[in-house]
């Protein structure tokens, strides 16, 4: 969603072979809800998109129901991203499905060099049943651990295949590998779209502070004054592990409009030139986000 003219947000999705990346991508495409997603894959080898979603396919692009597309980027990711950002048909979000040998942070650095797109977050998927064994693999151990460490969000998939006790144990183990990234347990790749793609921000414009019946717990912060935007972004990213995502706009003390993006422990702030109302939407994990949990933050915001 190129709302602020800063470029199309790019999420890197990775995880070891069999973690369920393809299932998750298909789930997001089925639940795109009008958002135009572009999925970039290394290769078309084993077809990454469920057949019933495909409207048309040629060697380079698969057209998907709802205006989404899937392309393979081969060995030239930056060219593929440039092409997507220059397309007539506007794209709201780009999802790069990285291969099992990928270094997701290196992909994100490359994304950062391309104009017209904006690094969003690194989402790493782990199979609840096999991740710990895979992380001990003779050859792949350090690659897998590095992927987990690079995550802004960790998604623990296939929790239906293990006991609750095992989910707890594996979650603690994951937290040891990456103490900053929120861990989101799911089944069958069914993850809340907004958590992965962060399209929560239009909620500000829809109804202000508003809580969906289903979906993740949401809290919208509405600063009433100019604030220290950097401190706010840092605080949301570092001090609130139960916030998976936050996104929105605030005005800094010099009067500039700033886009704030938080994905797990990663945050970024960018100056935007458009006149947009202030408001930051936070998506929570687990228990409902309530204003009383945010005393320090509210103090900071002078709300």
């Amino acid at each position: 969603m190129n709302l602020a003219g800063l470029g199309i947000p790019v999420t890197v999705l990775s995880g070891y072979l069999g973690a369920g990346k393809t299932t998750l991508v298909n789930h997001l495409l089925r639940n795109a809800d009008g958002q135009k997603l572009a999925v970039l894959v290394n290769e078309f080898g084993a077809l990454p998109i469920d057949k019933d979603l495909i409207e048309a396919a040629d060697d380079e692009v698969i057209s998907i129901a709802g205006g989404c597309i899937c392309c393979s980027f081969g060995s030239d990711l930056s060219a593929a991203l440039s092409q997507l950002s220059a397309m007539n048909q506007p794209i709201d979000h780009i999802l790069i499905e990285a291969s099992g040998v990928a270094r997701p942070e290196a992909i994100m650095w490359s994304v950062g060099l391309v104009s017209g797109v904006l690094p969003d977050g690194i989402v790493i998927l782990a199979d609840a049943e096999t991740i710990q064994k895979a992380a001990r693999d003779k050859y792949m151990s350090d690659t897998i651990l590095a992927q987990l460490q690079a995550a802004d969000l960790l998604i623990l998939n296939k929790i239906d295949l293990v006991t609750e006790e095992e989910v707890r144990v594996t979650s603690s183990w994951l937290a040891l590998q990456n103490e900053n990234a929120p861990i989101i347990p799911i089944t069958y790749g069914k993850v809340e779209r907004d958590i992965v793609l962060g399209h929560c921000v239009q909620r500000i414009y829809a109804k202000g502070a508003h809580q969906d019946a289903a979906g993740p717990s949401t809290l919208t912060l509405l600063p009433k004054h100019n604030i220290d935007v950097l401190e706010l972004a840092q605080t949301l990213a570092k001090d609130y592990p139960n916030i998976a995502r936050a996104k929105g706009f605030a005005t800094n003390k010099s009067g500039e409009k700033i886009l704030i993006q938080v994905v797990g422990s990663r945050y970024s702030t960018s100056i935007v030139s458009k006149e947009l109302p202030d408001g930051i939407v936070c998506l929570g994990l687990g228990e409902t986000l309530r204003k009383r949990h945010f005393k320090r933050l509210l103090h900071l915001l002078k709300i």
Binding site: S99, G100, V101, R103, Y139, M140, D142, T143
Partner: peptide, 9 residues
């Protein structure tokens, strides 16, 4: 250590 370019699988 360096990089794998192809998965063992």
């Amino acid at each position: 250590n360096g990089l794998w370019y192809t998965l063992p699988e």
